[in-house]
Amino acid sequence: MNIDLYKMSGEELKQLRADIDKALETIELRRKAEALKAAEDAAKAYGFSLNDLKEAGPKGSKNPPKYANPADPRQTWTGRGRKPQWVNEALKAGKTLEDLSI
Score class of each variant (00 low, 15 high):
residue 47 G to R: 00
residue 71 A to C: 04
residue 60 G to M: 05
residue 86 W to K: 08
residue 86 W to L: 05
residue 61 S to V: 10
residue 92 K to D: 15
residue 15 Q to I: 14
residue 71 A to P: 00
residue 80 R to F: 15
residue 23 A to G: 06
residue 71 A to I: 11
residue 27 I to N: 03
residue 91 L to C: 05
residue 92 K to P: 07
residue 37 K to W: 05
residue 52 D to L: 03
residue 35 A to I: 11
residue 26 T to S: 12
residue 60 G to H: 06
residue 86 W to G: 06
residue 44 K to P: 01
residue 31 R to L: 12
residue 43 A to P: 01
residue 69 N to Y: 00
residue 76 T to C: 09
residue 63 N to Q: 14
residue 46 Y to V: 04
residue 40 E to W: 00
residue 69 N to C: 08
residue 55 E to P: 00
residue 81 G to H: 02
residue 47 G to A: 00
residue 88 N to K: 15
residue 91 L to G: 02
residue 15 Q to M: 13
residue 30 R to S: 11
residue 86 W to T: 05
residue 48 F to C: 07
residue 88 N to G: 15
residue 21 D to T: 08
residue 46 Y to P: 00
residue 47 G to Q: 01
residue 74 R to M: 09
residue 37 K to N: 10
residue 50 L to Q: 03
residue 46 Y to H: 13
residue 21 D to W: 04
residue 13 L to S: 07
residue 26 T to H: 12
residue 49 S to M: 04
residue 57 G to T: 10
residue 29 L to S: 12
residue 91 L to D: 05
residue 70 P to W: 01
residue 82 R to D: 14
residue 33 A to E: 13
residue 41 D to M: 00
residue 47 G to L: 00
residue 48 F to S: 02
residue 76 T to E: 11
residue 35 A to G: 08
residue 69 N to I: 04
residue 17 R to I: 14
residue 59 K to F: 01
residue 24 L to M: 10
residue 39 A to V: 02
residue 57 G to A: 15
residue 62 K to S: 14
residue 78 T to I: 08
residue 36 L to P: 00
residue 68 A to E: 13
residue 82 R to H: 07
residue 36 L to I: 08
residue 53 L to S: 00
residue 52 D to R: 02
residue 59 K to S: 07
residue 68 A to T: 12
residue 37 K to A: 11
residue 55 E to N: 12
residue 66 K to P: 01
residue 22 K to T: 09
residue 43 A to Y: 03
residue 48 F to V: 02
residue 15 Q to Y: 10
residue 13 L to G: 06
residue 53 L to I: 02
residue 68 A to I: 10
residue 79 G to V: 05
residue 20 I to V: 15
residue 58 P to G: 11
residue 74 R to A: 14
residue 30 R to H: 11
residue 42 A to T: 06
residue 43 A to R: 02
residue 90 A to S: 10
residue 14 K to H: 08
residue 15 Q to N: 11
residue 15 Q to W: 09
residue 67 Y to P: 03
residue 85 Q to D: 15
residue 87 V to I: 15
residue 56 A to Y: 01
residue 74 R to H: 14
residue 93 A to P: 06
residue 47 G to P: 01
residue 25 E to A: 12
residue 85 Q to E: 15
residue 77 W to A: 03
residue 24 L to F: 08
residue 46 Y to Q: 13
residue 79 G to W: 03
residue 87 V to G: 03
residue 38 A to H: 04
